[in-house]
Design a protein around this nucleic acid. Structure first.
Lengths: 205, 205
DNA sequence: AGACAATACGAGCAATCACTTGTATTTGCA
DNA sequence: TGCAAATACAAGTGATTGCTCGTATTGTCT
């Protein structure tokens, strides 16, 4: 196993643009077909380049997905910032809390349909799941923090479990919300919120 | 396209046994790897036969999955019968209703881990999804019927939507329940029921 | 201008996989 | 018992796909 020193390329203007185009194309193709069924040749074609060119920028199909995951992660941070913006969580109405958290996260998923397609499918390589882990655990931590304020009497183990359940509900219902036609979407979001509130309300004193 | 008349085989003692063995093996392999990654050769090997022999009984990989789906459907009917056994739904406690419906369905999914692996994954051919449709719509219909009794004031369109949400919650949380270690399972089921009750309670008057 | 690296191409390689084929063995039945 | 169908085998086929290779073009620096 030779340790190949991959020193960074020099001319990056065209290259960086290409990489971004490739990721755009990959997001589309992955969203349409899922990770496994998306062929690297299809991604290259969607990006308007040859298969060989794709491999000038990414070492493998998995590397493309990995880079795309990183890009999603970065964008996701923005949505998280909005969703969990500082607020006096203890004082405000439960419905208000749910709105503030759910709305930005839903908006992100609607705006980035490729996101769930990449991360929510069971057919991606193990390494990719690791890329999603930071997002997942960040989300969990934030929800736990909210629970700690809103349901202070809940023992920490129960709190962790409840946070998991809440995140799970959200992630399970998101695909339906995203797939729903524009005019149905709000109603679906309302149902999602009803579920969350129904589970949360009894946890608060 | 020649209409090939596939007249039924004659000697079915050994054959039927083999088919059943193949389906057993397929259930295992599909559960482990998912539909796409499960190779027909692996299924044949797991059944202890040659690839050629597999194709003596099933025309294609999809046909194997189809037959397995049919077998699951038949078994599922039993679980449904238990879950939706006639009872004076109006009189009984909400928690009791949830227990009666959820417990047999959970038991079925725990006993047949291959079931969800086949039907809940997004990577199976379209034709297979059709095989799951009857189960799905039967389940939906039953839940709607319960809602009609327990929440008579709910307008039918809302009722349909609520049934969909309930089924979705169940299906989303089932994999976690199934994957949970034996000693954690009951706790996970309790959470599932909490979610369902939290959503259902406000629907009743 | 000359030179070198980055970018681009697309034919094609090697591996995988669903499925076939030719043949051998077993079984039910006359 | 003998025959035809059912069952069994495993090497092999064609199609697909991730990725490479040899080469040509474009851009940047001196």
């Amino acid at each position: 196993m030779t340790v190949e020193e991959t020193r960074p390329r020099r001319r990056q203007a065209r290259g960086e643009r290409r990489m971004s185009e490739i990721l755009d194309a990959a997001a589309e193709v992955f969203a349409d077909l899922g990770y496994e069924k998306a062929t690297t040749n299809a991604i290259a074609a969607a990006a308007g380049i040859s298969p060989g060119s794709l491999y000038q920028f990414f070492r493998s199909k998995e590397a493309v997905a990995q880079a795309l995951a990183d890009r999603f992660t970065a964008q996701m941070r923005g949505a998280h910032g909005e969703a969990f913006a500082p607020a006096d969580l203890a004082a405000v109405d439960l419905d208000e809390v749910i709105d503030r958290v759910v709305d930005p996260l839903v908006a992100f998923n609607v705006a980035n349909p490729g996101f769930k397609a990449l991360f929510a499918r069971p057919d991606m390589p193990a390494g990719l799941a690791a890329a999603a882990a930071p997002i997942q655990s960040a989300l969990l931590g934030r929800v736990e923090a909210i629970l700690a304020v809103r349901a202070p009497d809940l023992p920490p183990p129960d709190r962790a479990r409840s946070a998991r359940v809440l995140v799970q509900i959200f992630q399970a219902m998101t695909p339906v919300v995203v797939a729903a036609p524009e005019e149905e979407r709000e109603a679906e979001v309302r149902e999602l919120k009803k579920v969350l509130r129904g589970y949360l309300a009894p946890l608060e004193d």
